[in-house]
Structures are given as C-alpha cells and as structure tokens.
C-alpha cells in the first residue's frame, strides 16, 4: 500500500504532511513533498484528499495484487469525485454526494 508524489505538480503546501496519521510525508530540500517511509503507509487516503494540486497518486502494492492503477480524489463541498486511471489509460470516475448516506 502506498502513494506516489509527483514532484513536478507538488506546490509544497504541506497539507499532506500535516494530515498523514503516521506523519510519513516530509518536504525535501527543494520544498517538494516525498513519502519518507513508503512501506509504513496505511493506505488511508487522507493525503490525497488534502492535495489540491492533485500531485499524489494512491495505488495498491504489487504484493496485494495491485496492477498499477492510480487513484485521486477531489473534495468539494457538495461532491466527492474519485478518479481511477488504469495503466492503459482507462479512466473510471465515481461521484459521491457527501450529504447522502451509504445504502449499506
């Protein structure tokens, strides 16, 4: 389980650093975020929810059957938009209304 941070897109806002429940993300000397302890990631998705620059991809490790798809999420007040991009470019989008309860 882990995340990958695209340093070109990262704007160094530090939001992911402060929210990670394991404090696993740090800033490098160029002021860009990197995950210092990738094997320690719990996969909680808190960091991708914070990153407005969409610089963080969430993926499943190969050891748990991951196939390289990348997941991001955009948090809006009235809409949570999850986007999953497969390696062949196929994109899945799932929109969730945060005001609607789970049906299960």
């Amino acid at each position: 389980m882990s995340i990958a941070i695209n340093q070109k897109t990262c704007v160094g806002c530090k939001k992911c650093l402060s929210v990670c429940p394991g404090t696993l993300i740090k800033l490098n000397q160029e002021g860009k975020a990197f995950i210092k302890y990738p094997k320690d990631c719990w996969g909680c998705s808190s960091c991708i929810k914070e990153c407005q620059a969409k610089a963080i991809d969430f993926y499943l490790g190969a050891d748990i059957g991951g196939r390289g798809s990348r997941m991001q999420v955009e948090m809006k007040a009235d809409q949570v938009i999850w986007k999953i991009t497969e390696t062949d470019g196929t994109i899945h989008v799932i929109e969730i209304n945060p005001k609607a309860s789970n049906q299960y």
Binding site: M1, P21, K39, W42, G43, C44, G61, D63, I64
Partner: peptide
C-alpha cells in the same frame, strides 16, 4: 502482508 504492504492492515499501524 509482511512485505511492501506491511502496513495495509485493518487496525491503524500508528
């Protein structure tokens, strides 16, 4: 998952 995804566990590893 003791390898790369060792922290992909149910309870928070922290």
């Amino acid at each position: 998952n003791p390898g790369f995804s060792r922290h992909k566990m149910w309870y928070p590893p922290f």
